[in-house]
Design a protein around this nucleic acid. Structure first.
Lengths: 344, 344
DNA sequence: TTGTAGGCGTTATCAT
DNA sequence: ATGATAACGCCTACAA
């Protein structure tokens, strides 16, 4: 041993020396090129094991000008719906050696700028993003600019240049409303959602559509907007129930709102599923845990994450793919909050 | 412009040329060394903006032999308690330029091996890990081997060589049990938790301790083990309530079990908070959303994530720090599931 | 205060 | 089927 190696990390150079081959050979073996003789491959692997070598992706990424990394930009991981999406991302990445960064925008546009810049510095090879509401189209173009595939989820920028995966919001609310109509309800409210939100606009549309289809005049429709937190929702519920002719059922903007609403209703002596019927939208697991179980529309959060990643991975291998818009169709899940016979 | 630059990425070399300085100057500016004249700094920044430069952390990491990356290894992000932990990690990382990888072990030791190896290839500078139950001590030593600080959370390996942040499980169950005792209960069960789990052992200990302190013979104590899913819990509840002298209250292994238990109790005609009292452990937000509200013991999930990261960051700057064990003290949160006057 | 030059570990190109 | 060698973009002595 002529060189005094001071307990450094072992690199392919070390492997090459010990295995009596060149670094290129080692590299070829590592990347399973297939054009190295079986016995050399075996010997190299032997040495790798003996020396405890760890592949250095930083070096590889630098050299190859690309990386096995993607970014997942969301709002808040504590929101169970995003936990579902994140879980779907995980699943789609399983078996690949691609890892992902999870970053949180807190729905602030400056944060979104910051984290996206940060992700670019790390040289991500792909990005899945739930954009802040006020995001401008230019932003998506800039993201796409450096070549890495981008997939927007849930909030459709409506830009033919960007990939998108999301649920059909209109259809979801329509399904929910129809379900209530089929149960005989005629005074149905729409509860919750940020006043200016795109999702709310789309869902409201579906709600109106269902009413119209049932020949119910839109004059009788009524909706209440508000942040999806518990206190705000309690206020909306109070307003809703103190109308002179209160609704007998409500489509809630999402499951969290629905759960809070059920809570608030009980607090004022109305039993959800009996005195008033509630339908949520999202399909988070917690909907199955409350009592009565929440009838809701499954938006397939995990599937959205999976599809987005599949789309990204496909483009990482073949950048030539055409732009896609994937719309996932929602599904009604009947539990007890509409007083149906379904249990619980 | 003598060199034809073929729409390549812009590097510090480009910046240096354009700003009429050397690359080291640019580097110094980027790293805010402070020893570059204000006007040079301004000029460099100007050019950076003009050329649209993006810092390449891969290159920097490779050169510096370290990275601004940490790994967060957990079980399942859909578990709201881990969502809390993850959120705490996010928060602690805010303002630094450190990013994190989120990986999922599914509580399988092979997966844990795989993901940790993968993280090493990416050259993470720190690791926060919720280890799979069957993890051996050697595993932690190996993790620490390549120099990056490691912080184990929630499951204490009891190894003086590894940093640990976690709650006091024994104290948590003791608090829960004491609360029920103070309400006059004498027949209290312990419900749920994987039979061989460490957390269960510790919590059971606290439960027993509280009973003993109240001079209640341990012969009357009774516990039911089982996976924390809804069906299993329903079975446990059924067994519990069909005893000849059923308990009047139960300490649940965690909040999910508690929520499922409340569900199951109602299904057999027992009203939680009236016919039987329930206390959970964890303090996930969902406990506040059920009805009656879940009395529980707050384990400070987010704080655990924050502390773990703080510990990691401190060591990334100063590797010499001594090993720490941080124990977070649990806190009783009284809601309605024990029928107390607290609302709801 | 700023410049020069070598190297971090890997891969790609071109030989052999 | 292998080997030699020059990058990839940045940082850090060391020099000036």
């Amino acid at each position: 041993m002529t060189k005094a190696r001071t307990s450094q990390k072992v690199t392919i150079v070390d492997i090459a020396r010990e295995a009596q081959v060149s670094t290129s050979t080692v590299s070829l073996v590592l990347r399973k090129s297939g054009r190295i003789s079986a016995e050399t491959v075996a010997r190299v692997h032997e040495v790798i094991r003996k020396l405890g070598y760890t592949y250095n992706r930083n070096a590889a990424n630098l050299r190859q000008q690309k990386s096995q990394l993607i970014g997942l930009v969301i709002n808040d991981i504590r929101n169970p719906f995003f936990a579902e999406v994140t879980s779907g991302v995980q699943q789609a990445l399983e078996g690949t050696d691609v890892m992902f960064f999870l970053v949180d925008t807190k729905d602030e546009i400056d944060e979104q700028d910051r984290v996206c810049r940060s992700l670019r510095e790390f040289g991500i090879g792909g990005l899945v993003i739930f954009p802040v509401a006020s995001t401008r189209k230019k932003f998506f173009r800039d993201l796409t600019a450096d070549g890495a595939p981008v997939c927007v989820i849930l909030r459709n920028p409506g830009d033919p240049q960007t990939n998108f995966v999301g649920p059909d919001n209109r259809e979801a609310a329509r399904l929910a409303t129809r379900h209530l109509l089929s149960l005989g309800h005629r005074k149905i409210a729409y509860l919750g959602g940020e006043a200016e939100g795109q999702a709310r606009r789309e869902r409201l549309e579906g709600y109106h559509l269902a009413l119209t289809e049932a020949a119910i005049p839109l004059e009788t429709a009524v909706d209440f907007a508000g942040k999806p937190d518990r206190d705000t929702t309690a206020g909306l519920v109070a307003r809703m129930m103190s109308r002179e002719d209160p609704p007998t059922a409500a489509v809630c903007h999402n499951d969290n709102v629905a759960i809070s609403a059920m809570h608030s209703l009980r607090a004022i002596g109305k039993e959800p599923g009996r005195d008033i019927c509630i339908v949520g939208i999202d399909g988070i697991p917690q909907g199955a845990e409350v009592l009565p179980g929440l009838t809701t529309v499954q938006m397939h959060g995990a599937e959205i994450g999976r599809r987005a990643v599949q789309l990204i991975l496909a483009r990482m291998q073949n950048p030539g793919q055409p732009i896609e818009t994937v719309t996932l169709h929602p599904e009604l899940i009947i539990r007890g909050s509409c007083g149906s016979t379904a249990q619980p």
